[in-house]
Design a binder for these strands. Structure first.
Length: 857
RNA sequence: GGGCGCUUAGCUCAGUUGGCUAGAGCAUCUCGUUUACACCGAGAGGGUCGGGGGUUCGAGUCCCUCAGCGCCCACCA
């Protein structure tokens, strides 16, 4: 079969993927026998196209999976998709807005069904895209975060926590977005620096003996003040504690209390306490048993519990009105500019209101404590390592987790409230019904849904059918979890905590944190800026393998880097190189050839390439096992291009050894397969000698025997060839002859040197003349006349200077007694040897230089 | 206010535990139509590794410090 000159990925990729899928190549083989390897892929949001960042994830997980599959491990790469509760609802709301509708036009049930259909449409696209990326995941294991088994497990976990008192329902301050109408977990709030003001307000003492000035950034919340706090050791306010102040605008009497949380140095040292709208104040109010007065409602408007003029005003309007009124009353002591951090909704940018709400909370202390303990034992390795300590720090400061969300799109919380007794909550899985009856009492379903992360925390074992599934038994704990740094806290930490809590074991052994794929200019990709790179057109233009390799090239864990199309092009070229290497070899070998897995080296080039191959094999394993993807890629790149194509294939045009040629192609395809699955498999399918097999399910090559001495011979030949090429290029010469005076080595390798260096001939002569080669110890001369060779003086001169300088440095090093005494013997010996070699080179170059310099005069 | 990362060739970046003359791709320059490949071949030029100090026989690599950029966390009202 004659292959076309240029590899056109589009012609083969979809057929190759279909072949793998049809042959069940992704289904774990060798189950139950020996070792296994499993990666559960982080499920991307099912609501949108995959962006180029997921190509990185796909590559980082597919490469080790393919490697382990070839190593003979039972290998499972498990795909899935995330319903991404709030995220998806936001997307859908935008979609509704385009049609002039909003979420308020529908009931939650209606919304849920609509979003379900909306997502179902996109979910099929996701499968197509992952296939184009060449991900070798087992589609039979595909899991959606709203699949029954995931939902059931979320309910069981909720129940277990409820029974064990890790879950409680309580009225707490919740981070509330008044635009989206839902609360968030602490981690979901985005803090931004905002230029605001610090208003100093006079609070007169009830007994008329003076006043306290409090400083606040949110004057409108003063209507909900229940106390003023000062530091117990603050001498300025000693006499005030225990008295009361008259809260301006309301005339409510509120106490002055002492609490150590007050920073004496900030503002005036007197703090207004508004428990319903500030988390610190909430805590202080708990300590001092103070009431909580809500003055802002869920729409961001003032409630009816405030004086009439302010009722129903939006927060900003209320602020303005209050400041004006205070000023008119002469109660505004001072206004300063103030830079501070304010929480915002990470989706719409609305300022987050801390509001009092009854929600379900998870007591995180016991879970975090256990996770910290495990993290400290190094049972889970992190790449890069520094992320582990970061995670421990985070876990130490963790507050209780609000898992209730007031949205439609999500898993309903399986809890029901007694219609007669609001304190009476029961667990029940009949979430399809709004009202249920138990023991003659009627209960109403909690209208809220779970925070998405509550259910997705069980991802590693929910997907593997915990607790009884065969997959769980074989593959848990999984081997690798690869994610971006942004979900280290919300997801990775919770998978560890819940994994330990539910299964008693860690969910994964290794965590690899990848950096983000940024836009070409290094900025963040974002839809609104319009600089998002869609992977599919890139795949269509350059091929899936090219994108995969181009995206991992030069990337280190946890470091953000711009997308670089030049790298993709470079990788595309590598695919084409591989293609043409195969074309050449298949042509040389012919159709009726049977490959040997113990090839017999018959010349120095054979031994050299087999040694290189053994080294590649070993280094590749080591790099992959340590997740050094970029280094592994470079290794294969330079092996294919420099060693295999530029040297070995060129050498084989002189001395053909079909066995070795075929073996090296065979082994190269295997080793390159995880990085370039499509092109390697495409080539494999054209190989006559491998019959009906598939590369994806073939085995990783074993080391073969090769002589190191013979390999060294080839390296000597390379030195000679390179020097000749250099001189030819510098002097623009062709059809040169090489003379020697009877060197056996040169006689033996005449054809190879002649072929690779592009010489007219190599001749044995009585007296050598011309330009003496300096880099080899074999005496030989390029046939140049004096006139031509003189143009080479400059090069000889700079070489001479270079050697002289090196010798100077080496001698200085060796004359340093401390160096000889302290440095390892091996290093010192190497220095000595290098010095000798350089001296020899200097002598030769000097000799040539002076010969021509003399001739010139 | 804490914590972390980055600064290496014109550009984008590698450089694992300190040890040959600091690397790659692209770009640049010079040659080249040898039938695997111009998505190619041969060759070349280009870096005081952000500044300063220190430890060491030896520092791109470890420590201190300064500068610039970026990220994460944190309840200073």
């Amino acid at each position: 079969m004659k292959l076309p000159k240029v590899y056109e990925p589009n012609e083969y990729e979809s057929d190759i993927y279909a072949l793998w899928e049809k042959s069940e190549a992704f289904v774990p083989a060798n189950r139950g026998s020996g070792s296994s390897y499993c990666i559960v892929m982080p499920p991307p949001n099912a609501n949108a196209n995959l962006h180029i960042g997921y190509e990185l994830t796909a590559a980082l997980e597919d490469i080790p999976s393919r490697y382990h599959r070839m190593k003979g491990d039972a290998t499972l790469l498990l795909p899935g998709a995330d319903h991404a509760g709030f995220e998806t609802q936001v997307v859908y709301e935008k979609h509704l807005a385009k049609e002039g509708k909003s979420r308020f036009d529908f009931t939650r049930e209606e919304l849920y069904r609509q979003i379900w259909d909306f997502v179902a449409l996109n979910r099929t696209k996701f499968g197509t895209q992952l296939r184009k990326m060449g991900v070798s995941c087992d589609w039979a294991h595909y899991t959606y975060t709203l699949d029954d088994k995931v939902v059931k497990l979320a309910y069981q976990t909720f129940k277990k926590m409820w029974d064990e008192k890790l879950i409680y329902r309580g009225e707490r301050l919740v981070n509330f977005c008044t635009f989206h109408g839902t609360g968030f977990a602490d981690i979901e709030v985005e803090y931004k620096e905002v230029k605001g003001h610090l208003w100093h307000i006079r609070y007169p003492l009830t007994d008329g003996s003076g006043e306290l000035i409090v400083a606040t950034t949110r004057p409108e919340t003063m209507l909900g003040d229940v106390a003023v706090a000062v530091h117990p050791k603050d001498d300025r306010y000693k006499g005030f504690v225990g008295k009361t102040v008259k809260l301006p605008l309301t005339q409510r009497e509120i106490p002055v209390i002492a609490d150590a949380f007050v920073e004496r140095g900030f503002g005036t040292g007197a703090v207004k306490i508004t428990p319903a709208h500030d988390i610190n104040d909430f805590d202080a109010a708990q300590r001092h048993d103070l009431p909580k007065i809500t003055v802002i409602d869920h729409e961001g408007k003032m409630t009816h519990d405030v004086p009439a003029p302010y009722q129903s005003l939006a927060v900003e309007q209320a602020r303005e009105a209050i400041v004006t009124d205070l000023n008119d009353l002469g109660l505004l002591a001072e206004v300063n500019d103030h830079l501070h951090n304010v929480g915002h909704c990470y989706k719409c940018g609305t300022i987050i209101q801390p509001l009092l709400r009854e929600q379900w909370f998870v007591d995180m202390k016991p879970l975090a404590t256990k996770a910290i303990k495990v993290l400290r034992t190094d049972k889970i390795r992190f790449y890069p390592d520094s992320k582990k300590n970061q995670l421990i720090t985070y876990l130490k400061g963790l507050r209780d987790w609000n898992i209730s969300r007031q949205i439609a799109w999500g898993i309903p919380i399986p809890a029901f409230q007694n219609l007669e007794d609001p304190e009476d909550w029961i667990f029940d899985e009949r979430v399809g019904e709004e009202i249920i009856e138990v023991d003659g009492k009627k209960y109403r379903r909690d209208p809220d849904v779970f925070d998405t992360w509550f259910s997705s925390s069980s991802w590693p074992y929910a997907t593997l059918d915990y607790p009884e599934g065969e997959d769980f038994k074989q593959f848990y704990p999984t081997d690798l979890m690869d994610t971006g740094g942004e979900i280290l806290y919300p997801w990775v930490s919770r998978m560890i905590m819940l994994g330990l809590y539910v299964t008693g074991d860690i969910p994964f052994k290794d965590v690899y944190i990848h950096g983000y794929v940024m836009a070409e200019d290094g900025s963040k990709m974002s839809k609104s800026i319009g600089n998002v790179v869609d992977p599919i057109p890139v795949i269509e233009k350059y091929g899936s393998d090219a994108l995969r390799m181009g995206i991992i090239a030069g990337r280190s864990p946890a470091v953000n880097r711009g997308y670089d199309p030049r790298r993709v092009e470079e990788a595309r070229n590598l695919c084409n190189k591989l293609w043409n290497v195969a074309r050449f070899i298949e042509d040389k070998i012919g159709d009726d050839f049977t490959t040997r897995h113990d090839p017999k080296a018959t010349n120095s080039a054979d031994n050299w390439i087999l040694n290189k191959m053994n080294y590649l094999n070993k280094s590749m394993s080591s790099h992959l096992e340590n997740y050094r993807f970029s280094e592994a890629y470079e290794l294969i790149y330079h092996f294919v291009w420099d060693d295999f194509a530029d040297w070995y294939i060129e050498a084989s045009k002189v001395n053909l050894n079909k066995d070795v040629l075929a073996y090296v192609l065979d082994a190269t395809l295997r080793i390159a397969h995880p990085f370039a699955p499509f092109v390697t498999e495409t080539i494999w399918q054209t190989l006559k000698w491998e019959g009906d097999t598939m590369l994806i399910t073939s085995s990783w090559p074993k080391a073969v025997h090769a002589s190191k001495d013979e390999a060294a011979v080839f390296e000597e030949l390379q030195t000679i060839i390179s020097e000749i090429r250099y001189i030819k290029a510098e002097l623009h010469l062709k059809n040169l002859r090489l003379y020697h005076t009877g060197e056996e080595f040169l006689k033996k390798h005449t054809e190879l040197i002649k072929g690779l260096a592009g010489l007219a001939s190599i001749e044995e002569v009585r007296d050598g003349h011309g330009l003496h080669l300096t880099q080899t110890n074999y005496r030989c001369w390029l046939d140049l006349d004096q006139e031509t060779a003189i143009h080479f003086l400059k090069q000889l001169e700079s070489k001479r200077e270079g050697y002289a300088k090196t010798i100077e440095q080496l001698e200085a090093r060796l004359s340093n007694k401390n160096y000889v005494k302290n440095a390892p013997r091996k290093i010192v010996d190497e220095t000595k040897q290098q010095l000798e070699e350089t001296k020899t080179l200097l002598a030769k170059v000097t000799e040539e230089h002076s010969r021509f310099a003399t001739a010139q005069r």
